[in-house]
Design a protein around this nucleic acid. Structure first.
Lengths: 208, 208
DNA sequence: GCTTTATCGGACTATTTAGTCCACTTTATC
DNA sequence: GATAAAGTGGACTAAATAGTCCGATAAAGC
């Protein structure tokens, strides 16, 4: 993703790369807990212990930094989900995936929501490039879910006439909507209930 | 809801009430399309044609104004949903409700999301009072959905052992998650798919 | 009418925040 | 080691923005 760095063709020394990473890491954390707009560049500077000129040396401005954060969060989420879903081929495996997400969100009482989803709702109506990047990430994530569903079909645990893509969309919506309700209620229960309903539906398709 | 007005015990003349309404209406519109944080008080002033002293005369500050906007949006959404859901007692009625929401959102290519959901994700990590107000509104909205489901149970269209409350939570999550995915993709399809899956699940419970 | 209170306009202040600039240091390359 | 480019610190600027204040008008209550 080249949009995030303001100096594409430039040499980047190990020292520079390290600073850039520090900036993005600090911005990622801050924007997750405080929100994008509430996180000021000075906040990022203070948290990363970097000077202002460095930030503008590595990024064209706040929007570019936000896009770098999106890339960073996206990479981490996709990697996490690839590990969690890449080889799942049973309903039970899908339930274990659910348990992991719910328990991890329960630790914070659902307070911060989904790392990607929070970014999406905050950034969508401000920066079209960022919105598109997030859209691609959601698509990729959904693709991982669709892969699981197709493996279920291969093993006969899900009828072949079911649309894996549509079910994946529904499952992702349940997950994201659940995150949002949990965040608003400061209670993880609605998230768990929502995913459970989606999984129950998928499971029920093979029992008819 | 008394938290929104800074002068609770005070007299409020018809003129004053009108001004207050104008302010809230303008703020509601702006915050829906621009987002809460991106909407400045000067924006609200310009859009409502009101002076700054008036805004501070009626509200303690921006947070109080946001809470008034939440009350306003909440009232309108709940009233709309009460009209749309209050007497629904069939699956077909539920599908008509779905069609209305999807079509209305399709007009804007899903660009702005759910009026309540957008507020929720933006405000939750900043103002606890606002978050709680939104949480109550979601609960009330879900209650309307649960009412429909209970009427389905009364008429035998849904088995009595199903939990109307949990299904309502799942349906609301599908709706909100769908709104969010549609907003990110600028395409209403994922929202339609997500609600359809939730409705298919509800429908399937009576066919087993 | 008279008094009080609500309503109003808009200039003003203080602060925050994104973004600029320049002198200086480190690192890579030949 | 000389030179150029990357990296760095931090003061500075310009603009945006929340919030204050005061003088004035309109409305209400007696």
């Amino acid at each position: 993703m080249t949009t995030a760095d303001s100096h594409n063709g430039r040499r980047l020394t190990a020292r520079g790369a390290k600073t850039r990473t520090r900036i993005v890491a600090a911005a990622t954390d801050l924007m997750y807990v405080k929100g994008v707009r509430a996180t000021t560049l000075d906040d990022v500077l203070a948290a990363s212990g970097v000077s202002k000129s460095q930030l503008y040396h590595h990024f064209d401005g706040k929007d570019a930094l936000v896009r770098a954060v999106i890339d960073n969060v996206g990479e981490r989420v996709i990697e996490r989900e690839r590990d969690a879903l890449g080889h799942v081929s049973t309903i039970r495996g899908l339930r274990r995936w659910r348990d992991t997400l719910v328990q991890s969100n329960a630790l914070r009482h659902g307070a911060y929501g989904c790392a990607l989803g929070s970014l999406a709702s905050e950034v969508s109506d401000h920066d079209a490039l960022a919105r598109q990047a997030l859209s691609r990430l959601f698509t990729e994530w959904q693709g991982l879910l669709a892969g699981v569903l197709r493996r279920l079909q291969d093993s006969g645990a899900l009828p072949p006439e079911a649309s894996a893509d549509q079910l994946a969309t529904g499952l992702m919506a349940a997950l994201q909507g659940g995150y949002m309700l949990a965040q608003t209620a400061h209670d993880v229960t609605p998230m768990a209930t929502a995913i459970d309903m989606a999984l129950a539906h998928i499971e029920s398709l093979s029992e008819r």
